[in-house]
């Protein structure tokens, strides 16, 4: 599904050159739930940003379902992200002026779906994540855990091929974190491909595989049997 070859990312600030990713090779198969782990500064978030098209690598290739995504124009990358990828951010990243259902519906509106249909689908997804009745709440009227679940609803509403999650539990208490991880497990059970960055080992329990990064390189792939 995703094939990454010789991926490098180097940040340059004046004369200071900082290599963050140093020749990453990896494959992600359809339906896999993968965790990327590593110490702070290992390059795990940077790796996620490259393969999720939020950033452009310095070198290497990324192939998603046969498409070399590095050859896409900026407009094509935006379209690709809209139609085929979903994102869960560490700080939920909901638009504060939009209600829960509007936050979830906005990717559908961008695809040209009628407003009523989009809101209907958004409500359906919100119901499915046990947040019935929270449709018109604004982000500041929701707890951190609820905001993250709305963020997940927004990420999956257009049924993406791959779901990317950047430390989705980092800002949550343990109970909320557990709910979020359970939700991701449910999605995975339904066949959703998920790539998650985390530094908390206890939340990798449902993952199929854990990729360990150290100093910009993959040091190991741990295959697990999900429960």
């Amino acid at each position: 599904m995703i094939t990454v070859k010789n991926l490098t990312k180097t940040y340059t600030n004046g004369e200071i050159v900082t290599p963050v990713l140093k020749g990453i090779d990896m494959d992600i198969k359809h339906g896999e739930f993968i965790a990327i782990m590593g110490k702070s500064g290992a390059g795990k978030s940077t790796l996620l940003y490259q393969i999720s098209l939020l950033d452009k690598p310095t070198e290497g290739t990324i192939n998603v379902n046969g498409i070399d995504i590095l050859n896409l124009s900026e407009t094509e990358r935006t379209q690709f992200r809209l139609k085929r990828l979903g994102y869960i951010f560490q700080d939920y990243a909901l638009v504060p002026e939009l209600t829960a259902e509007e936050n979830v519906a906005i990717p559908l509106l961008m695809q040209g779906i009628d407003s009523n249909k989009a809101k209907g689908k958004a409500r359906h997804i919100i119901d499915s994540i046990d947040m019935v009745g929270k449709y018109t709440n604004r982000p500041n009227q929701l707890s951190g855990g609820q905001q993250q679940r709305i963020s997940i609803a927004r990420a999956i509403v257009q049924e993406p091929e791959i779901l990317f999650a950047d430390e989705p539990t980092a800002n949550l208490d343990s109970a909320s974190s557990e709910q979020v991880i359970e939700l991701m497990r449910d999605l995975h059970k339904k066949g959703q491909t998920i790539v998650m960055v985390t530094h908390e080992p206890e939340y990798t329990k449902y993952c199929d595989r854990i990729i360990y990064l150290e100093d910009g390189k993959i040091v190991s792939h741990d295959y697990k049997i999900s429960t």
Binding site: L54, E74, T75, T78, Q79, F80, R81, L82, K83, L85, Y87, F89, A93, V95, P96, I106, P107, M110, R154, A155
Partner: peptide, 16 residues
């Protein structure tokens, strides 16, 4: 700016 980035990130076009 952050929310503009997020909107772009989730696929909302620059034009919109």
């Amino acid at each position: 700016r952050k929310f503009i980035g997020i909107l772009k990130g989730i696929g909302i076009s620059e034009g919109a």
